[in-house]
């Protein structure tokens, strides 16, 4: 088995182990976070955030923090990308909030357009800046494929540590606010009427989304980064209707998808990000068919999540 070889051989291990560990960390917090993303229908917002990251990547490369940066350059790169994600998350997230929606009556339409604009503007900016960085010799060659679809060998030891730190922040944060956050996600106006700070809940979730997206960026790339923030819960709700069980299933699916996807990737020499995403999609498909067969209407959950 190549998997064992890759993770036991000292030379290969240093290349692959950071990616594996980062993937597992992402699976842990992505599994839980995705429950809220699916329920609050933030899937498309997640797409906007991850594409905004591409603009950040472009800026980082032009400033000379691109590629396999280490130390301060690594921090700078991560910080710039995070700022882009955070800006997009807050901009889009608060446009789509029901409060502004009610005031103007057009909140969702505005957010929809905003995501569309942020998405293409960031991609345009990112690709232009990467082109300039390459031309000016800031970086030898830009690996477009790796940036767009991720690559396990691009995940450095520092990335793995960053993923672990983000896992602690997100899981810890979710534990602290789990009750008001769940109430808010279930019934926002009522939560506000019972004293939940709904603006804070939205902020917390959006910041977590931005953090999670940045972390998943190296492994899964701009295009696939949000898969781990949407698919695990979308699959899990097909199998249960109890919050605790859905969260547990969601994490289990995410971890299973990372393990299976990486093994497929190692054994068959498939791209890692794509393998993981397709395993998740297959899990979702299985649940969807099962739900259909039982005549349950839970597929509407994902339809809503996907159409926004």
């Amino acid at each position: 088995m190549k998997t064992i070889e890759y993770l036991s051989d000292p030379g290969l291990r240093s290349i692959f182990l950071p990616g594996v560990l980062a993937g597992l960390a992402i699976a842990l917090f992505g599994g839980v976070l995705s429950v809220f993303v699916v329920m609050k229908r933030l899937a498309f917002i997640g797409q906007g955030i991850s594409h905004a990251a591409f603009g950040g990547i472009g800026v980082a490369y032009v400033l000379g923090f691109g590629g396999a940066a280490a130390g301060a350059a690594f921090s700078a790169q991560l910080g710039i990308v995070f700022l882009f994600c955070l800006f997009a998350a807050l901009q889009i997230g608060f446009l789509s909030s029901s409060e502004s929606g009610r005031r103007g009556g057009k909140g969702n339409a505005q957010a929809d357009t905003a995501i569309g604009i942020v998405l293409v503007a960031s991609m345009g900016l990112g690709s232009l800046l990467l082109h300039i960085a390459e031309k000016n010799g800031r970086v030898a060659t830009v690996s477009w494929e790796s940036l767009l679809f991720g690559s396990i060998v691009s995940v450095s030891e520092a990335d793995a540590w960053a993923s672990g730190a983000v896992a602690v922040i997100i899981l810890g944060g979710l534990f602290l606010v789990r009750r008001p956050l769940t109430f808010w996600a279930f019934d926002e106006p009522a939560a506000a009427a019972f004293g939940v700070n709904v603006g804070l809940m939205r902020l917390v979730l959006l910041v977590m989304l931005a953090l999670a997206t940045v972390t998943a960026m190296k492994l899964a790339g701009v295009v696939l980064a949000t898969a781990m923030l949407v698919l695990p819960a979308a699959a899990a709700v097909q199998f249960s209707q109890r919050a605790g069980r859905v969260a547990a299933l969601s994490v289990a699916f995410a971890v299973a998808a990372v393990v299976t996807g990486m093994m497929l990737s190692f054994e068959l020499d498939w791209p890692t990000g794509a393998s993981i995403v397709l395993v998740l999609a297959a899990l979702f498909g299985a649940g969807w068919i099962k739900g259909r067969a039982r005549g349950r209407g839970w597929s509407r959950t994902w339809q809503r999540a996907g159409s926004r």
Binding site: A185, F186, E188, V246
Partner: peptide, 25 residues
């Protein structure tokens, strides 16, 4: 109509939310 009914929770969980929202973590 305002609640998110596709949310995977039981009636008991929904009924406990207002009472538990103010509890410390």
């Amino acid at each position: 109509v305002e609640a998110e009914l596709s949310f995977p929770i039981t009636a008991r969980h929904a009924a406990s939310m207002a009472a538990s929202a103010g509890l410390g973590p």
